[in-house]
Amino acid sequence: MNQKYAFHYVTCGFTLIELIIVVAIISIIATFSYPSYTSYVVKTYRSTAKDCLAEYTQFMERFYTINFAYHQKIAGNALVLPNLDCATQGNMQQRYLFTADTLSRSTFRVVATPIGIQAKQDTLCGTLSIDQTGLNTASGTEGSKECW
């Protein structure tokens, strides 16, 4: 083997310094992009929860139209909030728990309570709710104006 080919093999590879620089650049990019990504995911699930609360509100209004009360059926059976598709699709059951409270003949409030990773990451808005008058609330630090 002559010197020409040996020298050629040495100049074709990456040095350790070049590899460390590439890893450092990737680490810096990941450091800034991961929080933005998780924030986007949290906002997406929150938006889906708000849409689902709107569907539950529509369910409650249909229930009232049939039974003339929000809290029970005409036969006297208490309201059992169904699992609507919006609450079970797209991993929503791992992010939010949907319930109804403040039930009476003329009032209701449907609530989306964050659970699991959503509860840890969404401290800005927290628990979302809407009542029969359309009043939106959020328990987090941002309040309902920013969250709805």
Rank of each mutant, 00 (worst) to 15 (best):
R105A: 09
A138V: 01
L103A: 03
S139W: 00
L53Q: 02
L53Y: 02
V42H: 15
L53F: 05
R46K: 11
L81A: 03
F7N: 12
T107M: 04
Q72L: 09
A69I: 09
H71P: 14
L124I: 04
N2G: 11
S104W: 00
Q121R: 12
Y45A: 15
Y9A: 10
A78L: 15
A75I: 15
T99I: 04
D85F: 11
Q58C: 15
I29A: 13
D131P: 00
I117R: 13
N83Y: 09
M1C: 15
A100C: 09
S36P: 14
L135Y: 08
V111G: 01
K4E: 08
L53A: 05
A30W: 03
Y96G: 09
T141R: 11
E18I: 05
D51C: 06
F108L: 09
A138F: 00
A78I: 08
D51F: 05
Q121G: 13
F14V: 11
E146W: 06
I17S: 06
E18Y: 04
R62F: 09
G76Y: 14
T48H: 07
S27D: 00
W148V: 12
F59V: 01
V42G: 11
Y64S: 14
A75L: 12
F108E: 03
V80R: 07
Q72P: 04
F32Y: 14
T57H: 15
G140T: 03
A78E: 13
K145V: 13
Q72A: 15
L81Q: 04
F59I: 01
S144R: 01
F63A: 06
F108I: 06
T38M: 08
F68A: 15
L97M: 07
Q3F: 05
V80W: 11
F59L: 04
E146H: 05
D85R: 10
D101Q: 10
Y96W: 13
A24V: 04
I20K: 06
F14Q: 05
T127A: 00
S139L: 00
L81P: 04
N91H: 06
T44K: 04
F63M: 05
T141A: 10
H71N: 14
T127D: 00
A100I: 06
D51Q: 15
V41T: 09
V110S: 05
A87S: 15
V23E: 01
S139R: 00
K4V: 13
F59M: 02
T141K: 13
L97P: 05
P114L: 03
I28S: 05
G143H: 04
F59D: 01
K43Q: 12
R105H: 14
A54G: 08
A30K: 02
S129M: 00
S27E: 02
P82F: 02
T57N: 11
G140N: 03
I130C: 08
K43D: 13
T31D: 10
R105Y: 12
P35N: 14
I74G: 08
